[in-house]
């Protein structure tokens, strides 16, 4: 520890007197940005390099040899490919189901005052705080009785539970942000409650709902613990596969698979750029 400390101190010490100069203070935000960039992007960058590394030995800054040789290894592995397929089949279904059962509830939370409203809202938060490992036995028993273990629907069910929070809180915030007059005006001209919801409320709320859907999808897609419990060994999704790859295979393999696993998230990130910038995300996090 002391070797690092003294070495760093030597280098930093010389810079300290810059503090008094305004120029330094003005560059401070840039330094902060740079530091944060290194912290956030660094690990990802190293991962990307590993995915394309043939050979990489310390202390080389870049891989000694760039190669794509690990990619066929990943794609050639049957269980890996199966896990990719499974992920792509469960996550969208989970998101849709989540929307169907949660959006009406979110609307109720936003518009109606009923006893126990806050308690219910919080229960969604607290239920997710119970460690899933602790539930293994009970869930396993329950799912065994219902013949859901290692099945598609069992995995869908357990992933669904993880998305409830996003699909209720963010839409509830969005619905609450829509002024009541807009809905009352629709009823005033003759639209029933249901029609008002579908033709007025939903279209106006759509950006916020899409953000919620985005997070629900990511939550379902990245869900590992519950799927590990319910799905293995027959039904494995990508995150669960990742555990195995990280622990049992050489680094580049894990790196390649990481890129594959991150791809849907990044694609959605690019698509949702506009929505996120409009502040729908932050709006959803208010209560």
């Amino acid at each position: 520890m002391t070797a690092v400390a003294s070495a760093l101190r030597e280098r930093v010490g010389g810079l300290l007197w810059f503090w008094s100069i305004g120029a330094f203070r003005r560059t401070l935000p840039w330094l902060f940005l740079a530091g944060l960039a290194v912290f956030i992007l660094g690990p990802l960058l190293s991962l990307i390099l590993w995915a394309f590394a043939g050979q990489w030995f310390y202390p080389a800054l870049l891989p000694d040899e760039f190669s794509l040789k690990w990619w066929p290894v990943v794609f050639g592995n049957r269980s890996v490919v199966a896990s990719i397929q499974n992920s792509l089949v469960t996550a969208p279904v989970v998101t849709l189901l989540s929307a169907v059962i949660c959006l009406p509830a979110a609307y109720a939370f936003a518009r109606f005052q009923f006893p126990g409203r806050r308690a219910l809202l919080l229960s969604f938060l607290s239920a997710n705080s119970f460690p899933k490992i602790g539930l293994y036995i009970s869930i396993a028993t329950l799912f065994y009785r219902l013949h859901l273990m290692t099945t598609y629907w069992g995995v869908v069910l357990i992933q669904l539970v993880g998305t409830l929070l996003f699909m209720i809180w963010i839409p509830a915030g969005t619905f609450r942000g829509i002024n009541r007059s807009l809905e009352e005006a629709a009823r005033d001209v003759g639209a029933s409650g249901l029609r008002t919801f579908f033709q007025i409320t939903l279209p106006i709320a759509m950006p916020g709902l899409l953000v919620a859907g985005l997070f629900a999808f990511l939550a379902a897609f990245d869900e590992a613990q519950g799927t590990l419990i319910v799905g293995s060994p027959n039904y494995i999704t990508m995150p669960v596969m990742m555990y195995t790859l990280v622990l049992n295979y050489p680094q580049p393999v894990g790196a390649v698979f990481s890129i594959l696993l991150t791809l849907p998230s990044l694609v959605l990130l690019l698509l949702a750029q506009r929505l996120l910038r409009q502040g729908y995300l932050a709006a959803g996090y208010t209560l």
Partner: peptide
């Protein structure tokens, strides 16, 4: 950015880093 990186990958990336 980290919001869109699955936890498994984040952990793995941190380890290699």
């Amino acid at each position: 950015l980290p919001l869109f990186i699955p936890t498994v990958i984040a952990s793995f990336a941190m380890v290699t880093f």
